[in-house]
């Protein structure tokens, strides 16, 4: 099988996630019971490998999973259109560490759950920005923002490899099981470094491999959308973050049972103070 191009990967991922969210958007319009959206990593082709989010796509399982990740108290006041469209592997620690007044950027904001939780933490003096490449996700996130009544959250459509965000404007970058979907991860980490203020923190959760992934997965587009093909080796992932200029990089990858080496990790890294962003091209 020929390896897919970066554009083919982006298109496949976008198509997959747009499809997942459409049922929920229709539900808002028609006020009919919501269609359960499947988890980030429960693409049918991913049956043999464990998913980052549990393979059960049912609504109850989805809600239970989210509740376990975020604790019931945090998500209890979020509408189901928010919690049903959370495809992440869990980023509660990053959200818990946020301080009032901080500016937060969520890479791949999806239906907005992490943004809304972050918005509560940073309070009215803070600000949360969500970036997602899928227009259907942005539309849903905006509708959710209206429902939740969040006034300190803004969403825009954009590419995490080419962020439409000013340099040195963000205190904390969060991202929940999304960076693996980007074909050019070096660009993602370079951009993250650029937009963070000196001393700012990158705190993301993602899928990585603890050992070399089976070669046939790397060229499978369905597995890209399922967060599996795009996942890097943990050591490679950390090396790319360091190469972008970050220091104090930590990663705590925990392997899934029977996961053939697939793992979920929480990564924390700091943009050192006093180091300018590397020169950028245009």
């Amino acid at each position: 099988m020929t390896a897919p191009t970066n554009d083919q990967i982006r298109e496949a991922v976008s198509r997959e996630y747009a499809g997942r969210v459409r049922g929920v958007l229709d539900g808002i319009e028609d006020e009919v019971p919501l269609v359960a959206a499947s988890g980030c990593c429960s693409a049918p082709a991913a049956e043999e490998a464990p998913s980052c989010c549990g393979s059960d796509a049912g609504t109850d399982a989805q809600v239970t999973r989210i509740a376990a990740l975020y604790s019931q108290a945090e998500v209890a006041d979020l509408p189901s259109t928010v919690t049903d469209v959370s495809f992440g592997c869990g980023n509660p620690t990053a959200i818990a560490a946020l301080q009032p007044g901080q500016v937060v950027l969520d890479l791949g904001s999806g239906g907005g759950i992490d943004c809304f939780l972050a918005a509560k933490m940073v309070g009215p003096a803070g600000k949360v920005y969500g970036v997602d490449r899928t227009p259907e996700m942005i539309a849903l996130a905006r509708k959710n923002a209206a429902k939740v009544g969040a006034t300190n959250v803004e969403f825009r459509q954009g590419e995490i490899e080419a962020l439409p965000v000013d340099s040195e404007s963000v205190d904390v970058i969060i991202s929940n099981c999304v960076i693996n979907l980007a074909p050019d991860k070096d660009a993602v980490f370079r951009e993250a470094f650029r937009v963070l203020k000196p001393g700012g923190r990158l705190q993301v959760s993602d899928m990585v491999w603890k050992r070399e992934a089976p070669a046939e997965l790397k060229s499978d587009l369905e597995q890209w959308a399922g967060c599996i093909s795009g996942a890097l080796l943990e050591s490679e992932y950390v090396a790319k973050i360091r190469a972008a200029g970050f220091d104090n990089v930590t990663s705590d990858a925990r392997e899934y049972e029977l996961g053939k080496g697939l793992a979920t990790t929480n990564v924390v890294a700091t943009r050192p103070a006093g180091v300018p962003a590397p020169g950028r091209c245009c």
């Binding site: 803004e154 080419a162 962020l163």
Partner: peptide, 12 residues
């Protein structure tokens, strides 16, 4: 107020 932080994705 989103304009405060928004830049061109190409040249920033």
């Amino acid at each position: 107020d989103l304009m405060e932080i928004l830049v061109c994705p190409l040249c920033k």
